[in-house]
Each structure stands twice: as C-alpha cells, then as structure tokens.
C-alpha cells in the first residue's frame, strides 16, 4: 500500500508559508526582570534569524509560549513593535506553563508561536487623545501600546494612563511609571486599593480617578484592560465622559489554546478572542454574549 508523506512542518514552508501553525519556534531567554512577587518580565529572542527578521506585530497581539515538556500558554506582548529582534512578555506565575517559566534562567530555551489576534488599531488611533485604564496585569498588553505611542508621540494628542493595583508592591513596571509621573507628555495617575508606607499616590479603585481628568469625547479613544470585574465599571465611566461605544477598546483575557480559531477554548459569543480579538471595541463586545 502506497503511503504518502505530507510535510507538516518543513522549516522553510513553515517560515514562508506558515504551513504548520502549531509548530513553535525555539527562542532563547535573554533577560529576566522580576517585577513583583508573582510577575516577571521575560525578554526573548527567536533563534532562527530569518524568522526573527521577518517577525512583526501590533500592540495588543499575543504569543503562544511553549515550555517544552509542560505545555503552552497565551501571553500578550509587552514590548513595542519598534523593539526589533526581541519580544518582551510580562508573565504572572499562575499556572503550570508560567510556573515552569519562572524557574528558568537566562539562556534557557522556550518556544514561541505568533503573533496572533487583532491588536489595538494603532493607525486609527493617531490624531486622537488616548485614555487608558489598566488594572493589575492588564497593564501588560497596554505597555506595548504605551511604548508604541511613546515612539510616535507627536502623532497623538493628550495621553492619559489610569493605573490601578491592589497594593503598591503589585504595581507592574513601577520604577518606570514612578519616573513617568513627572513627565508632561503623559498624564499618568496611579492608585492602589491598600496603601503602605511607601505610597504617596491615590488610594481607591481606578474608576475613582475619572473625577480628576478632563476628556474631550470628540477626539478621545478609550482603552481598557484589567481583571474581568473591572470592565463594566471602567466602561460606565468612559460612557459618562461621552465616549462613543465604538471608540472604547477592550482587551480580553481568554484561554487561547490553538491561537488560530479552531479549538474553541477562547470563544466569546460568535467570536474568538484569538483571531477576532483579543481587542474588541465596546460596540462589538456589547453584541457578544459572555464578553463581560
């Protein structure tokens, strides 16, 4: 009986035609920065130089991170697209894959697939004021957007970042943001639920910060990312500021397993977080059952 061998991952086909979208590229951990007790920033470099050179993404997209022998997890990209050659992932130690990653060292090998999904509409956002609301780990995908806006700051109007965390020790990228508090090109306001002796900022929920800001609804784009419970409240505040429903962008967390719209784990209504999202505008999200 004649057997046919069908190549499912000849390297070249994978690189050029993406023939097997399940196959990860080996990547090396090039830097590890501990951010909090549970979150760490990993800088990764795809080993194959051709793949690395072709690699490009939009802020808001995600990667599938492989720890060989453990499994895969979807992680949003935290670095800006302008940072060529490296990919930064801000990872919470919360499961088997992320737990195994936290035990790894610089030089160790992981796998990467991606980038997947629809990110923030960066080009459409140009010319607008940007109002970002992030809670907890929600700052991870927004960090990519913030850095990208920073790269092309002159293209944007007023940029406001409202950042909330449970307590000061859980604020991600705190050192950088502490310095940013004194910049005049970004209006960054941080708040915590429970302050400690190091804290001289705001106290309370991130939604309380809306009292302190002025929004021109005609030219502002809203962006929200945070724990599931945060979305409704943050959207309410943006709606009170008269932002139109299709100019409020939300980035959703789901368990994308395949990343390519097949396995169905990240289904939200009739959309998939992995190929239609993870960024949706509020009008789209309103029409998706289980979105929030």
């Amino acid at each position: 009986m004649k057997k046919t061998h069908v190549p499912v991952d000849s390297s070249q086909a994978y690189r050029e035609l993406r023939q097997n979208p399940y196959r990860p590229w080996p990547a090396r951990i090039t830097s590890i920065t501990k951010l909090t007790d549970t979150e760490t920033l990993f800088e990764l470099r795809i080993i194959d130089h051709k793949v690395r050179e072709q690699f490009n993404f939009n802020a808001g997209q995600f990667m599938e991170l492989s720890i060989f022998g453990v499994g895969e997890a979807p992680i949003s990209i935290s670095s800006a697209p302008s940072k060529k050659g490296f990919i930064e992932l801000c990872v919470r130690n919360a499961g088997s894959v992320t737990g195994a990653l936290h035990k790894m060292r610089c030089g160790d090998i992981v796998g990467l697939r991606g980038p997947f999904g629809r990110g923030f509409p960066f080009e459409d956002m140009k010319g607008h004021d940007v109002l970002m609301v992030a809670g907890g780990l929600g700052i991870a995908p927004l960090k990519s957007l913030i850095n990208h806006i920073h790269d092309e700051r002159h293209e944007f109007g007023k940029v406001t970042i409202l950042l909330g965390a449970r307590n000061p020790s859980e604020i991600l990228f705190r050192q950088q943001f502490d310095m940013w508090r004194h910049r005049d090109d970004f209006n960054l306001i941080m708040t915590v639920d429970t302050p400690d002796e190091t804290w001289d900022g705001e106290v309370g929920l991130v939604t309380k910060l809306f009292d302190q800001i002025e929004v021109d609804p005609a030219k502002t784009v809203g962006v929200i990312c945070g724990p599931p419970v945060m979305y409704r409240y943050a959207i309410d505040e943006m709606r009170k500021k008269k932002l139109p429903v299709d100019r409020i962008y939300l980035s959703f967390e789901r368990r994308m397993k395949c990343g390519i719209g097949i396995c169905n784990h990240c289904g939200i209504g009739h959309k998939y977080a992995c190929i239609d999202g993870p960024v949706f505008n509020y009008w789209e999200a309103m029409n998706l059952q289980e979105a929030m």
């Binding site: 009986m1 004649k2 057997k3 046919t4 061998h5 069908v6 190549p7 499912v8 991952d9 000849s10 097997n20 399940y22 196959r23 990860p24 590229w25 080996p26 990547a27 080993i47 492989s66 060989f68 022998g69 090998i109 992981v110 796998g111």
Partner: peptide, 21 residues
Amino acid sequence: SLFRYDTHSGDVVESELEVTP
C-alpha cells in the same frame, strides 16, 4: 501527536504526518 520535540533545544524532531490513502 502534533509533533515531537527535543526538550533542550526546542527543535521539532519529527516533522511528517503519515497519511494512508
């Protein structure tokens, strides 16, 4: 099995799907 890999190098070591008509 989608593919097999070398745990240390991350290289995919089996790269063909055998299909019989």
